[in-house]
Simulated assay, not measured.
Amino acid sequence: MSVLIAIPARFASTRYPGKPLVELRGASGQARSLIRRSWDAAMAVKGVDRVVVATDDDRIREHAEGFGAEVVMTSPNCRNGTERCAETVANLGLTPEIVVNLQGDAPLTPAWFVEDLVAGLRNAPKAEVATPVLRASGRMRADLIADRRAGRVGGTTAVFGHDKQGLYFSKEVIPYAAGEFADDEPSPVFHHVGVYAYRPEALAAYPTWDEGILEKLEGLEQLRFLERGRQILCVEVESRGRQFWELNNPEDVPRLEAMMQQMSLD
């Protein structure tokens, strides 16, 4: 098998319990659950051999099987999506070339984000993990800052070196930049898109490591790799006119629905 996409989904989210089953209305008014929309996004990616939903909750399992998804049950002890993906691969007894973690709260993830991510990892044979980053427009940067000022944990930002290796990821808006940017002006901030591509060896090693201090402080699973000295390749992706946002808080539901209206996405 070449590429497996796993969609980790848990019901008992600290910030937003039941989030995978929350419904979003598209441009036509049709409502679909977050996990259904994430599944549809995964199925649109080219060059993928298999897509599975990975969960520990029977409500999510029953719902996902109801729309035709393949579901892999995992332990409730998984601390994050990366651990759930690792257990999924182990449960399936597979050794794919690349495992993609398409988290179940990013239904607006375009197929080319994932396709470019897989291509980026393939083109960097020494890289063990890769993740997409999207240059934030002035408007997106302002939205990220507004979330933080309001006390909401919104999107994640990333900084990386000239070699595209990740230096740090944070729920704060980094790097700091003085002044304002026009809505459609590129800013120096990169929005981290919550998708990961792993080589199976790196993914299998991840659950054997203890949570790191930075991972606990930020609540960002990818920091465990950095704290262990493992590099994360940041693959810059292009929006191609598409808006992108993740569903982190209940307040994000109307924001995502408005984006789908504006982009005529059903």
Rank of each mutant, 00 (worst) to 15 (best):
A178S: 15
S170Y: 00
S170C: 08
D163G: 08
G212S: 09
Y196F: 15
A119Y: 03
N123S: 15
K164G: 09
L117H: 01
D143Q: 14
R152Q: 07
G104Q: 07
G138T: 00
V193K: 04
A177R: 14
F181K: 05
R152L: 15
Q165K: 14
D163R: 03
V195L: 14
L117Q: 00
T109H: 03
G120S: 03
W112I: 10
A106T: 15
A111W: 00
A119M: 09
Q165I: 15
V193E: 02
P110V: 05
P188N: 02
L144W: 00
R152E: 07
F169T: 10
G161V: 05
L121C: 11
L214F: 06
E115F: 02
L108M: 07
L134P: 07
D147V: 07
V100S: 05
D147L: 08
V159Y: 01
A130P: 13
I174F: 01
F113S: 07
L220N: 05
H191Y: 13
L102D: 06
L108V: 08
E172T: 13
F160G: 12
S187T: 08
R152C: 08
S187L: 06
L203E: 02
L108A: 08
V133P: 07
G155F: 04
A150C: 10
L223A: 02
V133Q: 02
P125H: 01
P175L: 04
L203Q: 02
E128G: 15
E185C: 09
E215W: 04
I174G: 05
F160N: 08
E211N: 07
A146I: 12
V133L: 11
Q222F: 12
E211P: 11
N123Y: 02
G161K: 04
V99D: 01
V129H: 00
N101R: 08
G138H: 00
V118Y: 03
E215C: 13
A202P: 12
S137A: 04
D163M: 07
P175Q: 02
L217V: 15
Q222A: 15
A119W: 01
L102R: 04
L214S: 11
T208I: 08
R199W: 02
Y168I: 13
H192E: 12
V114T: 12
V129C: 09
G138N: 04
G212R: 02
E211M: 15
F190C: 12
G179A: 03
F190A: 13
L217P: 09
T208A: 15
V173D: 00
L217R: 13
D210C: 09
G154V: 05
P188D: 01
I213K: 15
E221L: 11
T109P: 11
E180M: 13
P188Q: 05
G154H: 00
A124Y: 03
P110F: 02
K126F: 09
G154Q: 01
A158H: 01
L214P: 10
D143R: 15
V99R: 00
H162C: 12
E215P: 14
V153P: 10
G138E: 02
P107F: 00
E211T: 13
T208H: 07
D163E: 14
G151M: 06
L217N: 10
E218P: 11
D184F: 05
P188E: 03
K216M: 13
K216R: 15
N101K: 13
W209F: 05
L217G: 12
Y196P: 11
A177I: 09
E215T: 14
R224P: 13
S170G: 09
F169C: 12
I174P: 12
